[in-house]
């Protein structure tokens, strides 16, 4: 069982990304997945998060994720907005971030970090700063889900915009680096 926390800003498609990811794992790969969005007074630009649990076995827990194995950050500015992305993490927690590099001042700099400039990829492919499909590509690159399953789920959920979103995911998968 892997527990994953997604952090981002309202409008970046965090909740949708979690659903697509769960679809890819549960339907595409035939495993089990649960996405648990935290709803509130979300507004564009405000910090949002979503929890994911994936497993080979049926998932019992219906709780939020408290001890994440993976933390996916769609926008590092959530840290400036007062979100503690380190909550519940341990030394083995892996980070996946939307940035071109890992700066030493990041609180997770000593962790294993996957990083990719998802924002630029989104701007290039979608012409909009919605990094969710690129971040899904990054999550595939980090081994959380197969790329094919992720692409399939992206095409299913995005419909007409499936091609460009799949392209964004592919680019992020290819461009993903590790510290």
């Amino acid at each position: 069982m892997k527990q994953i926390k997604l952090f981002g800003l309202g409008g970046q498609g965090v909740v949708t990304a979690a659903k697509i990811f769960a679809e890819a794992v549960a339907i595409g790969e035939g495993k089990h997945a649960q996405s648990i969005p935290a709803y509130g007074h979300e507004r564009r630009g405000a910090p949002v998060y979503s929890d994911l649990i994936v497993s080979d076995e049926p998932i019992k827990t219906k709780s939020f994720v408290y001890e994440p194995d993976y933390v996916v950050i769609f926008d590092l500015s959530v840290i400036d907005k007062g979100i503690d992305v380190m909550v519940g993490t341990n030394a083995n927690t892996v980070f996946i971030i939307n940035h071109e590099c890992v700066l030493p001042e990041y609180p997770f700099a000593k962790h294993q970090v996957y990083y990719v400039g998802a924002k630029q990829i989104a701007l290039d492919t979608l012409k909009r700063d919605i990094p969710n499909s690129a971040m899904l590509g990054a999550m595939a690159g980090a081994g959380l889900v197969g790329l094919d399953a992720a692409i399939q789920a992206i095409r299913k959920i995005f419909g007409k915009a499936g091609d460009i979103n799949a392209e964004a995911a592919n680019k992020a998968y290819a461009g993903l680096r590790k510290n």
Partner: peptide
Amino acid sequence: LDGFFLSHMSDV
């Protein structure tokens, strides 16, 4: 069904 925990939790 529990609000959000079930209503909005994607599951197989």
